[in-house]
Nucleic acid binder design. Structure first.
Length: 645
RNA sequence: GCCGGCGUAGCUCAGUGGUAGAGCAACGGUUUUGUAAACCGUGGGUCGUGGGUUCGAGUCCCUCCGCCGGCUCCA
């Protein structure tokens, strides 16, 4: 057995290993000083604690100190127990459900007669402090199923009983005990409750037992914990930073968009400034799509029920569709554009010479999302997609997918998204029958998608069972300026809709063939993408996107004429500017205002500038670029805009 | 949809049963301003909606609407 020590050393152990029962004991014999530092270990990516039973076969065990990467999975789990312990002390009637560590912290679900109140968090946190101070050791108890049953019945924990009953035969059943608190738990845990002192309770939320809305709603408390005080502070700072960037706040402050209670939830008003950003994004996309042979179309917002029956939407998407009645006939508002693009494809006989046919549309679709999931621009009912459907021969699919992926990287890269995570969603090998299309279609298509990613040398995650029922897909996730991942681009192959709508083309063999359809969107929904973009840039858009690119700031009213002449020049060069002047407002006031509006450039002009026909340039960063000739400034700025910087 | 919290002026918020407030914004005036907030004044509200309790409701109760946090990263 090879031990990788926290300090990076590697240690080969044999004798100690054989004679000891658990990792903790082995370390005691091996090196008591080391044993004090180690709180657990990682083995083949799985976390274990000091109770870990030493395996007879050789292998590698990576010992973890409290500060080590990965140790948080242990101490956060323990902190969840500490929290449950505190809750049990304060609310003895609370029933325990589950309490795992999660990506950014931990939670524990409780069944309590009264939901927790915000004030309760404070009390619970104080009680947790006590548990931490008491410094109980976490003791693991391994028991038989019968003993476990007896213990849980005595503890009167119905949810634990349910969990126990579902544990598979032969699995080792264990409890962990710290002080008076005992919990059915597989571990792993840190040695004692006093090791981690820096924690914070974050939210109370309702959560269904096992996430199923048919089950009872439990009360969940979220929290997080860190080994070092600084790390907790950094974490809390980052949450503040995310709040500072909140697109809902910035959207109002910068007059980008709004939602109106009188109109309805999830319906977006793009205000002039927001629409300016959107128009620039669209302009960029349209340019790039035309270069690649896409053709833009526009299609209706409604269609008869029959159409959605053929497409299959009525059988699997009906609850998300808005129904309208027209002259006694049933219509549905479109939740997707595909059937319409297919109708356009079918409007005449297609030949292989027409393929690939790339139909693109900024189509606004409507989806009846459940009210509880709506969230600012990120989850809405009005969805403007940068959508396109590519009709192609099966053997063209691979080339098309490669082109879409390249296009996505080009466009997203220009917007400052440089880190990508890619997933390839394929069939569930266990359950092949639930998918449409032929087995051959699937095998070829999955191979084609994989080949695209391999040829580009892109790392990707293969997600079995995540494919749509009509075909496999590639999704691109991007990392924003503060490291959050967002799923944007999607490229989906479809062999089912061509069949349902009986799409055909005449091939060069003189026979009719069935095309593939590729559904693809780069930004996805413009509304959602805009929300992401606002947060990504914290509202400070690069100059080519900025709704107002230049603020013109004359100092006194005698400089107004000159200011207007400068604005004319900017306008002639296609630059968006605002002349900010009011006889009541000082220059400082207007500078601050422009700054808060995150306008990239401010041009100040007073006597000096009028005299020398120049403008004093200030950036929104506060940097002073000094006086420049308006023409030189405009030329430089126009170049930046043209380069989309 | 479900659980909890919230809803007072355009915005941010005070106001716990007894005459609806502040700051900012808007508007009017004084000031003619040199790089993140000059000064004085004025208007602005069915306290989200509808109902109820009460002599009296922004405040207490119910209904609806909307917003916010969440709703398996499984002992």
């Amino acid at each position: 057995m090879i031990l990788k020590l926290p300090d990076g050393r590697r240690l080969e152990v044999n004798e100690t290993w054989r004679s000891a029962k658990t990792l903790g004991e082995a370390l005691q014999v091996l090196d008591p000083k080391l044993a004090k530092k180690v709180i657990g270990a990682r083995r083949n990516g799985e976390y274990v604690d000091l109770y870990f039973r030493l395996p007879s076969e050789d292998g590698q065990l990576e010992l973890l100190a409290l500060e080590d990467e990965g140790a948080q999975w242990l101490y956060r789990h323990s902190m969840a127990h500490v929290m449950a312990q505190a809750v049990k002390r304060l609310f003895p009637e609370a029933k325990l459900a589950i309490g795992p560590p999660i990506e950014e912290g931990f939670y524990y679900d409780f069944d309590v007669p009264e939901p927790f109140k915000p004030e309760d968090l404070e009390k619970i946190a104080q009680e947790m402090q006590k548990v931490v101070k008491e410094n109980h050791s976490f003791e693991r108890m391994e028991v038989s199923r019968q003993e476990a049953m007896k213990m849980i019945k005595e503890m009167k924990e119905p949810y634990k009983l349910e969990i126990l009953n579902e544990l598979e035969e032969g699995e080792q059943i264990s409890f962990y005990k710290d002080g008076e608190f005992v919990d059915l738990c597989r571990g792993p845990h840190v040695p004692s409750s006093g090791l981690v002192k820096y924690f914070q309770l974050l939210e109370i939320a309702g959560a269904y037992w096992r996430g199923d809305e048919k089950n009872k709603m439990l009360q969940r408390i979220y929290g997080t914990a860190f080994a070092k005080k600084e790390d907790l502070e950094v974490f809390l700072k980052r949450r503040e930073e995310a709040a500072r960037r909140d697109h809902r706040r910035l959207g109002r402050e910068l007059e980008l968009f709004s939602m109106e209670e009188e109109v309805g939830p999830g319906l977006i008003f793009w205000h002039p400034k927001g629409m300016t950003v959107r128009r620039e994004l669209e302009k960029f996309e349209v340019e790039e799509h035309l270069k690649r042979g896409y053709q833009y179309v526009a299609t209706p917002h409604l269609g008869k029920a029959k159409l959605w029956e053929i497409s299959g939407h009525l059988s699997y998407y009906r609850e998300n569709m808005f129904r309208v009645e027209v002259e006694g006939q049933e219509y549905f508002v479109k939740p997707m554009n595909c059937p319409f693009h297919i109708m356009m494809y079918k409007s005449k006989t297609r030949s292989y010479r027409d393929l690939p046919l790339k139909l693109a549309e900024y189509g606004t679709v409507y989806r009846n999302e459940r009210s509880g999931v709506l969230h600012g621009l990120l989850r809405v009912r009005m969805i403007t997609q940068d959508d396109a459907h590519i009709f192609c021969a099966p053997d063209q699919a691979q080339g098309m997918v490669a082109e879409v992926v390249d296009l996505a990287f080009h466009i997203l890269g220009t917007l400052g998204f440089k880190d990508y995570e890619i997933s390839l969603s394929v069939r569930d090998p266990e359950n092949l029958s639930k998918y449409g299309g032929t087995d051959e279609d699937w095998q070829k298509a999955e191979a084609a998608l994989e080949a695209v990613l391999k040829a580009k040398g892109l790392p990707y995650k293969r997600m079995e069972g995540e494919a749509q029922f009509y075909g496999p897909k590639i999704d691109v996730h991007v990392k924003d300026a503060i490291g959050r991942l967002w799923q944007l681009t999607t490229v989906q192959l479809d062999f089912v809709l061509p069949e349902r709508f009986d799409c055909k083309y005449a091939a060069d063999d003189g026979r009719e063939h069935r095309p593939y359809i590729i559904h693809r969107a780069l930004f996805g929904a413009l509304e959602r993408f805009f929300g992401i973009l606002i947060e990504h840039y914290a509202g400070a858009f690069p100059v080519w996107l900025a709704p107002v690119q230049v603020a013109i700031l004359p100092i006194a009213d005698r400089h107004l004429d000159y200011a207007q002449s400068v604005q004319e020049k900017l306008k002639a060069a296609g630059i968006r500017s605002e002349l900010s002047y009011s006889k009541h407002k000082t220059l400082s006031y207007r500078v601050r205002d422009a700054q808060l509006q995150k306008i990239p450039y401010m041009l100040v002009m007073g006597d000096k500038e009028v005299e020398s026909s120049s403008v004093a340039v200030r950036l929104r960063t506060g940097e002073d670029l000094g006086p420049q000739k308006p023409e030189a400034f405009i030329e430089e700025l126009a170049r930046k805009v043209a380069e989309r910087r």
